[in-house]
């Protein structure tokens, strides 16, 4: 929405000074390092010394790197799980609370974990999943089951995803709830009078009316699935068998711990390309099937 008068204040080129601090900070800290990273990804390094420019070696190496391949697969698994555990659970919760009176206390409690720093969440859940004296195994053995090593293969990815779900379901509930609350009560009420079932109201009336928010949630979960670092690092620490290695962790290990700047930059570029590709694909789907995303 642009009002015609907005740009009426006189034009003067010195006004650029207002934008300059923000622009400069952004250029120096984001744009220039981004360009560096692009160049580095074609450069051969030994520790912190450049040896050779113009090599494609890192990209070729990345194609046959089994650990990187594993990381990619884990990222996709993580996204698959968190679509259900984060946005799916959030949608379910929103669908329930919207139809109950006095739901504010539920909503604020479900939302609350997200304010915690990832370090608190990670260390707490590491203890919950712990083999000895863990909450989950104590419950399991109490019920007559066996101890399980939750943070190693084949449970690693689902265990981390559950923590993500626990952390973010309330956030998605809040988004979906806000969308559902905008649907006029009269629509729901007349559907109820016409004898629509609860599932009918949810699936046929409410869901289609918030499909743009569902697409938005998908976008956040899928791009977020390639950015998540904290929980993996804190829950799994060294993770020597790489049962839960994901791209961001692989990246930090490559450039930071192994000081392989060239290969790290190439991995970083791959990660960036994947995220941008996802954004483009989801926007494309959005344009074709959903229409404009409502300003929220």
């Amino acid at each position: 929405m642009f009002y015609g008068i907005i740009n009426m204040i006189a034009k003067k080129n010195s006004y650029i000074l207002f934008a300059l601090p923000a622009v400069l900070l952004f250029l120096v800290i984001v744009v220039i390092p981004l360009l560096f990273t692009v160049v580095f990804s074609f450069t051969e390094w030994r520790r912190f010394n450049i040896i050779k420019f113009g090599t494609f070696e890192h990209y070729i190496r990345s194609l046959s790197d089994p650990v990187l391949g594993k990381a990619f697969i884990h990222n996709f698994l993580y996204i698959l799980f968190t679509i259900f555990l984060e946005s799916g659970t959030g949608l379910l919760l929103a669908g329930i609370v919207i139809h109950l009176k006095r739901s504010i206390i539920y909503r604020s409690l479900f939302f609350s974990p997200i304010i915690l720093p990832s370090i608190v969440v990670g260390v707490l859940w590491r203890q919950i999943y712990a083999y000895h004296a863990g909450l989950l195994n104590s419950i399991l053995t109490g019920l007559g089951g066996k101890d399980i090593d939750w943070l190693s293969y084949p449970f690693t990815m689902i265990s981390v995803s559950i923590v993500s779900g626990w952390l973010f379901a309330g956030f998605f509930m809040t988004i979906f709830y806000a969308g559902l609350a905008r649907i006029p009560d009269s629509i729901i009420e007349s559907a109820k009078l016409d004898g629509a079932s609860a599932s009918g109201i949810f699936l046929k009336i409410e869901l289609p009316l918030i499909k743009n928010l569902i697409m938005l949630a998908l976008l956040i979960v899928t791009t977020g699935g390639f950015k998540g670092f904290d929980l993996f690092q804190i829950l799994l620490r060294r993770d020597p068998l790489e049962s839960g290695i994901v791209l961001p962790v692989f990246l930090v290990r490559t450039f930071f711990e192994n000081q392989d700047i060239g290969y790290g930059s190439a991995v970083s570029m791959l990660l960036t390309l994947v995220v941008i590709a996802i954004i483009i694909v989801i926007n494309f789907i959005n344009k074709i099937f959903v229409g404009r995303v409502e300003e929220f």
């Binding site: 960036t272 941008i276 954004i279």
Partner: peptide, 19 residues
Amino acid sequence: LFFLGLILPTQSFLVGMFV
């Protein structure tokens, strides 16, 4: 320019920034 910042993950400039 700032729209660039909306789509870029931190990881895309982390290495360059570190160096």
